[in-house]
């Protein structure tokens, strides 16, 4: 009973934070456009008044890469480097917003306008950033340990002959089972920092682990649900975006709107996770 009630309360809390989610979306969109629009201009410059763009209408004709010559390399380089910068900047931006969201779900339930949200985000930013870096590092190490090392060893020993077999699924399953634990620790730690106003990250992590132990099954099953929903949504959204090939201007604009709606939903799912963990903490208290 608690399980559904917690998920529901988390969803309601996330949904009622729509203004904050829209702020996050808009900020992220503007940031990405800073890189994407110049790229589009480069692409236009390459093709100028050529009809060669018709070769891209029903999917990118990779043969064009040769015709584009060095421009193709520059474009890919700019898109990759720009993408890397965006991921780094986005990491900072979303860590910043996480501070505001946890404040919203912890101590200012129903009472956090955009200005206060920004203030709370700014107040929590540094400790949240340190915590996010630390936990990201732990998750990378976890991934390397559980997936990278065994797969590497098996591939070396068998000279790749069992790569792709079902046996290789085992490390991935173990990794997926462990991920909700790390997410719970991270979110509990952040909730603790938001609730106490403390910036001590190791104490926060201690509190996170302690909260994890209390009512572990309930917390874990809730987080597993959220993790699966997030993963499925992420995969489905990317699949839709990848395989959609709108060919005309109006359809492309609709496609743009659809992808942005998907991204807003993605932000909602993330906020739902934060809110649900905050709810879990309230119940445990």
């Amino acid at each position: 009973m608690d399980y559904f009630r917690i998920l529901k309360r988390g969803a309601v809390a996330a949904a009622t934070s729509y203004r904050l989610i829209l702020v996050m979306w808009l900020t992220a969109l503007m940031m990405v456009l800073l890189v994407a629009l110049p790229l589009k201009s480069i692409l236009k410059g390459v093709f100028d008044r050529s009809l060669a763009t018709e070769r891209m209408l029903d999917g990118f004709d990779a043969g064009l890469a040769g015709d584009m010559g060095q421009s193709f390399g520059y474009l890919i380089g700019a898109a990759s480097f720009g993408g890397l910068l965006l991921i780094l900047a986005g990491f900072l931006l979303f860590t910043f917003f996480a501070g505001g969201l946890f404040t919203r779900f912890t101590i200012a339930w129903g009472d956090l306008n955009v200005a206060s949200f920004m203030k709370a985000s700014a107040r929590n930013f540094l400790p949240f950033l340190m915590l996010a870096l630390l936990m990201t590092l732990i998750i990378f190490a976890w991934t390397a340990l559980i997936i990278g090392v065994p797969v590497g060893i098996v591939a070396a020993v068998t000279e790749g002959s069992i790569m792709g077999s079902r046996l290789m699924l085992i490390p991935f399953i173990i990794w997926a089972l462990g991920m909700p634990v790390w997410l719970l620790v991270t979110d509990h730690s952040r909730r603790w920092m938001a609730a106490t106003g403390s910036g001590k990250i190791f104490r926060a992590m201690g509190a996170g682990f302690k909260a994890l132990r209390r009512g572990f099954l309930r917390s874990y099953s809730t987080m597993v649900t959220l993790f699966i929903v997030n993963v499925l949504f992420f995969g489905a959204a990317l699949w839709i975006a990848t395989f959609s090939v709108p060919e005309r201007g109006g359809l492309i604009f609709l496609f743009f709107l659809a992808t942005q709606a998907l991204f807003i939903l993605r932000l909602f799912l993330k906020a739902w996770r934060y809110a649900t963990v905050s709810e879990l903490a309230l119940i445990q208290a």
Binding site: L29, V32, A36, M56, L57, L86, A237, E247, I252, F255
Partner: peptide
Amino acid sequence: PASGRMMTKYVFLMQMLI
């Protein structure tokens, strides 16, 4: 249209990766 579509996909991919 093709470059518009490619840029839309790029924007969305970046947002999702972030």
